[in-house]
């Protein structure tokens, strides 16, 4: 493929294939936000989070819960609504280069999704184990739960659905139908949130002691497996990208 003068000009003018700034900004956004959260729980967990009947608990924790739920609903609707509203109605007729660019943008979303899953399922979930050693658990809404269940889980859910929506509305690869593993990778971890209902219900009449391996928690385990479905997404993506690169890579 000889580069014509025109295409060189087009190169200079067009957007880069991967917008690195968005990628790094995405990663830094989660890191900065969760660093703040970690600081917040470090300070107000100890000063206001040990007794759920104390007025300061209402101020620092219950209010945080109310605010985060409202913000999450708005973000969920806003982000997904925006992606849907600005969907590409001629997605099958984009140029290969544009398709490649969109795969990069899609992967920027997926990188953020993986990152958000790490914070939710690993960092804040195991953290729960140690906080419940420290307090006498006197409410469903412990500081650790307010962050784990009602902040970090919704955030990865929002990130996951957004990335799914992006793929569905902008990439030719996903026009065939619904990608089963992609659905599982997004809906499985999502189901962890409703499973909180089972968890809290169980803890209302079961012991308030902290046994992580209790069968009551197995619902989380089952839905956690769904994270593996990211492998199906990876495979589909690799196949699609291979199609775009194959002849140039040979």
């Amino acid at each position: 493929m000889a580069a014509t003068t025109e295409s060189v000009k087009a190169d200079a003018a067009e957007a880069p294939l991967l917008n690195q700034r968005n990628l790094w900004a995405g990663i830094a956004l989660y890191l900065a936000f969760y660093s703040f959260i970690r600081w917040y729980e470090g300070v107000y967990g100890w000063s206001a989070g040990l007794d759920s009947f104390a007025p300061e608990f209402e101020t620092y924790w219950m209010n945080m819960l109310y605010i985060e739920i409202v913000v999450e609903v708005i973000l969920f609707a806003g982000i997904n609504g925006y992606i849907w509203k600005t969907r590409d109605r001629k997605v099958m007729s984009i140029t290969p280069r544009e398709e490649l660019r969109r795969h990069f943008t899609h992967w920027t979303w997926l990188v953020c999704y993986g990152w958000a899953i790490y914070w939710g399922a690993s960092y804040f979930t195991e953290q729960d184990g140690t906080w419940h050693q420290t307090i006498v658990r006197d409410t469903d809404f412990t500081p650790s739960h307010i962050i784990e269940f009602y902040l970090s889980y919704p955030i990865y859910i929002i990130t996951g659905t957004a990335s799914f929506m992006y793929a569905k509305t902008r990439l030719p690869t996903y026009q065939e139908g619904l990608h089963l593993m992609y659905l599982i990778a997004v809906i499985g971890p999502f189901m962890i949130l409703p499973n909180v209902g089972l968890n809290e219900w169980g803890h209302t009449f079961w012991f308030m002691e902290e046994l992580f391996v209790a069968p009551l928690h197995y619902g989380f385990v089952f839905f956690g497996w769904a994270a593996l479905a990211v492998m199906g997404v990876v495979n589909t993506e690799v196949m699609a990208i291979t199609k775009l690169l194959k002849k140039d890579l040979a």
Binding site: W107, L110, V111, Y113, G114, W115, I117, Y118, G120, A121, S122, T125, E126, Y156, A185, P189, G224, W225, A226, A227, L228, V230, M231, V234
Partner: peptide, 11 residues
């Protein structure tokens, strides 16, 4: 993504 998603699910 593979690393972080597997990390989350596995953990």
């Amino acid at each position: 993504t593979l690393f972080t998603a597997v990390l989350g699910g596995y953990h």
